[in-house]
Design a protein around this nucleic acid. Sequence first.
DNA 1: TCGCAAAATGTATGCGCTTACAATTGCGGG
DNA 2: CCCGCAATTGTAAGCGCATACATTTTGCGA
Lengths: 371, 371
Amino acid sequence: MTRKATVYDVAERAGVSIATVSRVLRQPDAVRPATRERVLDSVTALGYVPSGSARGLAERRTGVLGLYFPGFDASEDAPDLDVLADGRAERPPFTIEQASSDAGAPHPTMLFLDEVLRGAELEAWKQGFVLMIGVGRDDPGRETVRDIAGRVDGLMVLAQSVPDDVLARLARRIPVVVLSGPARGDSYDHVTVSNAEAMAELTRLVLAQADEGALAFIAGPEDSPDGAQRWDGFAAAIADAGVAIEDVAVLRGDFTRASGRRAAEELIERGVPTALVAANDQMALGAIDAFRSAGIRVPDHVRVTGFDGIEAGALSRPALTTVRQPMIDLGRAAVQLLARRLERPDAAPMTVRLPLQILVRESSQRPAGDL
Amino acid sequence: MTRKATVYDVAERAGVSIATVSRVLRQPDAVRPATRERVLDSVTALGYVPSGSARGLAERRTGVLGLYFPGFDASEDAPDLDVLADGRAERPPFTIEQASSDAGAPHPTMLFLDEVLRGAELEAWKQGFVLMIGVGRDDPGRETVRDIAGRVDGLMVLAQSVPDDVLARLARRIPVVVLSGPARGDSYDHVTVSNAEAMAELTRLVLAQADEGALAFIAGPEDSPDGAQRWDGFAAAIADAGVAIEDVAVLRGDFTRASGRRAAEELIERGVPTALVAANDQMALGAIDAFRSAGIRVPDHVRVTGFDGIEAGALSRPALTTVRQPMIDLGRAAVQLLARRLERPDAAPMTVRLPLQILVRESSQRPAGDL
DNA sequence: TCGCAAAATGTATGCGCTTACAATTGCGGG
DNA sequence: CCCGCAATTGTAAGCGCATACATTTTGCGA
């Protein structure tokens, strides 16, 4: 790897000017086939790859879109790994563990983000962009978002991953799309889902099956916007159904499986409901665990629903009724919004609302005989 | 969003030269506190964000690392989504589906890549880089890899995602690290895992439990390097154990659950083995399905093992004994290698071999009574 | 063969930033 | 109050490419 080849090298070798080289790469038809060949030969011979920086500077656009995530994994604290350290060679090529737990499964929010990312990448590719990603971390001094913002034509951020003031500042430089948060009346483009409406509908489905029995709800942590929206949807649905909120056992969890288990144990003491609506899948699965331990059958004795559509819910028995986020489409929609705004910078801010998918599975179905 | 602010704007507003502005951002200590304040004021007032392109060009490094994946999801064919189309507003905010299948679960290779990506992002952040990602697709004309290569300081590619000649060319421009393929004696840095060794060890564990019975193996598709390595490990282990290869029933699958099911059905006809080693988890799970349908109990009648460590294996009953790839660490190691090479461009090419994790779970354990 | 419009190519500038080097300023001792 | 050095700031030269505009070449009809 000597010095990297530049247009100048290519031009010289092909006996043309750098303008011609540039043309061969950008508008091949504008140059005579013979010269084109000659230039392309030099390109391969020299292993020339155009500098993205120079291009970006000259064209005043980078062709890159940025996606910025909140960091849910506290990965700042991840142990250091040093593959370059000495003595690695002597280490065994494998380790053996007696394992029955499912420890090590990634945080569900991560899975969510992975799919959003996939959708974004796909659509970016379709639109001719490349994707740059960043994760929000406690990061005094080093401003990763700003870093990224300086390198891209447009930025997608997940709600709450960037402080408002920082975001406002970045938006002065490039278009910003906010994903999956409350559709505030601000001036950004938004992509959201109808959390509340879907939860309301799900609750209606549950009520339709719940006979006369008692209803229970496991809410998420207080500071979760998602959790709040889901609660709103639930509350709206039971209000519509003429059920008094006081008649519903409302517990609070923290979105973990353990907290769902605890909540269900409390319910068992206070009296088992006919139906339990949980604000996410983890807690629903935890509740099912607790019910099972207590000999209470789902869905025979109690119907249970979750929210999110994680894989464990599909694999559990009974399979968990839930609501799936259109994750791929979230990513794709965000890119489309960005592409649109890059074309028409002064169009009015837009909010795209994607439909959720209610997956009715066994855990919420009244036993067949009763139908 | 008027015209984007540049150093010139900031300099003028602060009454200094552009050099000073640049210094404030790059080496704050080299400028007198008073001036520094003035400059920073202008920066915020103007919403200035430095251009990554210009920086990259001037510094001759971008601070970006690239990660290039093979595209396993045939996403080129993904249906178009058009969130900007008219009439979206009228669409319902949710859809309802009676669903019991686990359709829609992402391709396991995707999950693998997601984690590698996560590891890479984490380590890139720790080392002060930003990550750019690209997915390999059938892509006549548009050369995404090259595109990315032009914008980054170093490139990580998953084995087989980039044709050899293209890779060779890119490597002339920037350092390249190849992930998870055979450690060929080429001139790139490599990160791999000990597929064969781990499979051999797993096979040994199985043999130790397999009594006198017959052994079976479900191989992967012929063109899979991973599959081949796993076969090699298996073959080596049984050879060591003095078992003739002819005494082992070897079937071939295509890494899908269905193919595992078919293979097991064939085994049931030909005679159920005491132990079945599959080249990946999907096929192992498929085989377990088939055994269950036939009333054959796992692990009581037949011990089964997989490879990969997918989540469904941990959740299934019996939980699947398998080998987990150190996916996060693969990504992290790749970044470390890249960072090292950027520092010392002419160090000898290096191959880092990461240990695999053998997870011994129920599906391979001889029933307790027998111990 | 010549003339002219169209096609092909070359020239030169600027994109926004970093940085070597030059010029200026500040400060302490004499 | 002056001198010399160090700290600060300014000047200017690229970094590699795209492109407007100028120049040359080509193709074609007369």
